[in-house]
Structures are given as structure tokens and as C-alpha cells.
Computed example of a mutant assay.
Amino acid sequence: MRMRILSVALAGALVTAILSGCGASGGGSNAGARGDSGSSDTIQIAVAGPMTGDNSEYGIGFTNAANMMAKEWNDKGGVLGKKVEIVPYDDKNTSEEATTIAQKIVSDKKAAGVIGHFASGVCMTAAPIYQENKIIEISPSSSHPDYSGIGDYIFRNNTIISKEGEASVDISINDLGKKKIGIISIMTDWGTNTSQIIKQLVEASGDPDVRVVAHEEVMEGSDDYTPAITKLNEAGADVVICCGMYNLVAPVAKQYKQINPDIAIVGFSNAYSQQLIELGGEAVEGVCFPVIFFSESDDPAVKAYVESYTKDFGAAPSALTSQAYDSAGMLLTAIEEAGTTDSETVKNKLYEIEYKGVTGDTKFDSNGDVDKEFVKVTIRDGKFVRMN
């Protein structure tokens, strides 16, 4: 059923290496497979992501969204007559912690599935463990092209980065009319991969005047990006594509506009967060990015969701938070329609369902991926608005 990017042998070898290297005690292909909940009064869903540290907003957002979805189901009587319970795990956005958490989840044998993790590299460390133990994982955020190919229990409710990269490049060239592209990227697997994809997309634009004039890699969480900014500015960049989260985009915008107030800045959906505006202030006015979910949508279902989320948690939901909300909804719907929490049965059902959620109509393909339309968003007068 699944066209794998990684071979079964490679995925199995990776699982073995991870488990043996961490001293885990087993985890054969059936060791963690779930059956029905039996006498349990709850159906447990694990949420794994960074609950502390620089990227904690994402993990907390995932948890808030999953709890909100669970409450909606519980208010209607639960799933299969049982209460849905959300159990959060803090992976600190590190592969080491994610390995420990994945091993705990499969050892406990209580979770009907996992929503998470956040960063692609972290997801790809944990995914082979879930795959080997037949635990469903749906990442709301992983965009690395190889992630879902790890196995047929591995899903993503996010587009692969090449799709989003196309949208960011399109904004830079066609919407903003820029030709001299600068790239600043964080030194992570995601940042490196994304920057390379941007270069390839720019080269394939078909316009001989459009080119990447400079690319600078930076440490995530740095306070001073001026050395990289100076090089980009000296190279003549008229737009800079930021391959990083809001904690990169906000300080880059502040520091860059002190040097060149006219610079255009384009990001990705992982920067679409109220935190970007709070951290960047006036400097992030005009920053653009593509998003799958737009909180200012006129769609009645989206408006109701945003109002409810904002009332419960004090801020509007981000795109990735909303993808976590729909991910939890898809998993619970699959369990309900399957009539069981048996992981293989639920996994097969996930490939069949067509889910209408706040992030659009979602259908997993045979590789566990989705394809969705992007909305182009910018910041104007301190608010997110659609680009005209």
C-alpha cells in the first residue's frame, strides 16, 4: 500500500540502532501493537512536542488543540462510549528526549496514537520506534520529504517543504516583484534542507534575472544576526527568505531594518504566530508567508473554532496548532469509524477517511501525506491579513 522513501530494511535497522544505543529492552514488530482498550474507561492519545524551551509554544499549542478536540468528543459522549484522555510529553525538541518518550509510549501500550512531534529531525528519530511497534503517529508539522516514508503507521497533516517552498518563492518573485534573493537559515536538518530547496526553486524559476545572491546559516536562538545580515545586505539582496521559526524571523526583521529599512522578508507557516508580532513589533510589518490555516478566515466553522480557542487559551491558534487540532480529530474519527482502537484497523481507516476540518478538506494519500492549498498572508497594522 505504501510507497516508501526509506526501505523496510533501512527503517528496521534504524530502529534497532536507536533502541540498542539507548539500552531499551526490546520492541519487536508486535511488541507494542495495541488492541482494544478492553476494560479501560478511556481512550488515550499522546501528544509529543516541546512543552518547555524556545519552541514550547508549538508543543503547548498541540496540547491545547488536542484537549479542545477531546473535549468536543467527550461532550458528545466520547469515542466508542469512552472518554478521550490527552497525555502530553515534553520532548524538548531534541532527538534524545524524543527517543526516550517514544520508547515510553510504546512500552506503556496505552496510547491509541501520537500527535507530534514538532521538528522534522525529531519526528524522524521517533517515527521508526512507532512504526516498529505499530503505533500511529500523525505529525502536524513535519515537512521533511523522507518522514512519512518511514512506514505505513506514519502520517503528516502538513505539506512537504518543497510545496511550501514553492509558495514562499512565488511570494518573493511574483507578489513582491523581487529578483535578488537572500536566504538566512537555521543550522538544523530542517533549515539546511529547506534552504537547499529554496535555491533549487529559484534556479528553476525560468527568469534569468532572478537568482540567490547570498545564503547565510545561523545558530537557532542567537541574539545577534548582524554578521549574517551584513553579508546578505552587501550582496544586494532585495528580499530575504527566512528558513526558521518566529524566533528567527522577528530578530532578523528588527536587526535587518536597522541596516536596510526597505528589505522585504518572507517566511514559512511555522513563523505564523502571534509571538512573531509580539517579538517583532513594527519591524515585522510587511513580513509575508504562506499558510494552510488563516485565523481571520470568514468561514463560519473556522470563526467558531478561533473564537472558542481564543476564549479557552487567550490567543488565536496558529497554523500548526490548527493542524494538530485536525490531526486529533482525524485520529478520533478513524477510531470511531473503525469501531476499535486496534492500531492496524485504525491505521487502515485513516487512509480511507476524508476529513473536513478547520485546515480544509484532508485526505491522506498512500504515503500518509496531504496536499492543501496555501493562503498568502502578511502583517499590516499589527495584524495578520491576506495579501491583496
Results as ranks from 00 to 15, higher is better:
residue 6 L to M: 12
residue 9 A to D: 08
residue 11 A to E: 10
residue 12 G to N: 15
residue 17 A to E: 11
residue 18 I to H: 01
residue 18 I to M: 05
residue 31 A to K: 13
residue 32 G to H: 00
residue 34 R to P: 03
residue 38 G to E: 09
residue 41 D to W: 01
residue 45 I to T: 04
residue 51 M to Q: 15
residue 53 G to R: 07
residue 54 D to A: 15
residue 56 S to H: 14
residue 57 E to F: 13
residue 64 N to C: 10
residue 65 A to M: 11
residue 65 A to W: 03
residue 71 K to R: 12
residue 72 E to V: 01
residue 75 D to T: 04
residue 80 L to M: 07
residue 80 L to K: 11
residue 86 I to L: 04
residue 88 P to W: 10
residue 89 Y to S: 04
residue 95 S to D: 14
residue 97 E to G: 06
residue 98 A to H: 09
residue 104 K to Y: 02
residue 112 A to G: 05
residue 113 G to Y: 05
residue 118 F to M: 04
residue 121 G to S: 02
residue 124 M to T: 10
residue 131 Q to R: 11
residue 132 E to Q: 15
residue 134 K to N: 05
residue 146 D to F: 12
residue 147 Y to K: 08
residue 153 Y to L: 07
residue 153 Y to K: 03
residue 156 R to I: 00
residue 163 K to Y: 02
residue 165 G to I: 00
residue 170 D to C: 01
residue 171 I to Y: 08
residue 181 I to L: 00
residue 186 I to C: 09
residue 195 S to Y: 10
residue 197 I to N: 13
residue 198 I to E: 00
residue 198 I to P: 08
residue 199 K to N: 12
residue 202 V to S: 12
residue 206 G to W: 00
residue 207 D to Y: 02
residue 221 G to E: 06
residue 222 S to E: 14
residue 224 D to R: 08
residue 226 T to Q: 13
residue 227 P to Q: 02
residue 230 T to C: 10
residue 230 T to K: 15
residue 232 L to C: 09
residue 236 G to I: 03
residue 238 D to A: 05
residue 239 V to G: 08
residue 247 N to L: 09
residue 255 Q to A: 02
residue 256 Y to G: 01
residue 257 K to Q: 12
residue 263 I to E: 08
residue 267 G to W: 05
residue 269 S to W: 03
residue 271 A to C: 07
residue 272 Y to L: 08
residue 273 S to E: 13
residue 273 S to I: 00
residue 280 G to K: 02
residue 286 G to K: 02
residue 289 F to T: 07
residue 289 F to Y: 15
residue 291 V to I: 04
residue 295 S to P: 06
residue 296 E to R: 14
residue 299 D to V: 07
residue 302 V to A: 07
residue 313 F to T: 01
residue 322 S to M: 03
residue 326 D to K: 06
residue 332 L to G: 05
residue 341 T to D: 00
residue 344 E to T: 08
residue 351 Y to L: 05
residue 353 I to P: 11
residue 357 G to C: 10
residue 359 T to K: 06
residue 365 D to M: 03
residue 371 D to P: 02
residue 375 V to F: 01
residue 377 V to S: 08
residue 378 T to C: 07
residue 380 R to Q: 15
residue 381 D to R: 09
residue 381 D to G: 09
residue 383 K to E: 15
residue 383 K to I: 02
residue 383 K to C: 01
residue 387 M to A: 01
residue 388 N to Q: 13
residue 388 N to I: 02
